[in-house]
Design a protein around this nucleic acid. Structure first.
Lengths: 146, 146
DNA sequence: CAAAAATAGATGATAATGCATCTAATTTTG
DNA sequence: CAAAATTAGATGCATTATCATCTATTTTTG
């Protein structure tokens, strides 16, 4: 079944908005000499899990990362001492991940750039026609309530 | 300046929604033995330019592609006879691009998968919590009207 | 108009991505 | 409980992306 005008509009707006903003984010971080967004997401997700730690497969589900990519990002983070892994004693396949102090510190430092950039980009986004298109398309498609 | 809750929510929702849907799109196309989404976008954008053709730099601006990526995608499309290039006589640096019949045919064939997938994905998107988050966040941020 | 700056597009080097597959461990099932 | 199926995570390989830089051509400017 072919998409309606509204559905197509929504997808295009979503696509463009994401591409534009994502690029701004990555460039702001790189300009600040900081690692890519992906690192932030992973560090944040692990931190959220708290002191119990979390296993990679949970991160993959939550972050919607490809398993192989997550595996490699984690290896980087671990090699750099930003994340610490301990073997699980209930499941010998799994490794429990926790953010180290150094990792938490880096995440905060990234937030110093990333946070303001979210503000800037979202203001810009909602100010231009993309938000209008997104909003109208969502409105038109929204099932019932709201 | 740090982002508000709403701004952060919007960015996260945008990010997740895009990642989810984009993956579905690419997989649907690949499953149908068709080339990646990027090809569709480029073919479509060139077709939109009509018989006058269009130059790569315009496509780059419109599609928000990296110049080097666009250059290579175009080379692929040209090599496969999907796009035809002619030198511009007003600007010897530029090449004017037009979609060939074969290119138009491929784009249509891709639309056979892509179109229905837009429908499916947008329905799914608006049915789950992502749309709610996007919508609420956009609402909260939208400057004035609407 | 000549020199400097900007623009169109290509390309080499490097890193990131996705897919398929692999090993090891765990769960399920007959 | 043994065999089959599933799951966690790593890794090789091919593709794609990004950055920086390069050439060739305009465009701008003093």
């Amino acid at each position: 079944m072919l998409p309606t005008e509204e559905e197509t509009r929504l997808w295009i707006a979503l696509n463009r908005a994401h591409r534009m903003v994502h690029r701004e984010m990555e460039r702001a971080l790189a300009a600040g000499g900081l690692p890519p967004l992906k690192w932030y997401d992973v560090l944040w997700a692990i931190e959220m899990a708290g002191s119990d730690g979390v296993r990679a497969s949970n991160l993959r589900d939550w972050l919607l990362f490809e398993q192989s990519n997550l595996s490699r990002v984690l290896r980087s983070l671990i090699e750099r001492g930003l994340v610490h892994e301990t073997a699980s004693d209930t499941d010998k396949r799994a490794k429990i991940l926790r953010v180290t102090d150094k990792g938490a510190e880096l995440r905060l430092r990234m937030w110093g750039i990333y946070g303001p950039q979210i503000h800037t980009s979202m203001i810009k986004l909602t100010a231009d026609e993309n938000a209008g298109a997104l909003l109208r398309a969502l409105h038109a498609l929204r099932p019932k309530d709201e």
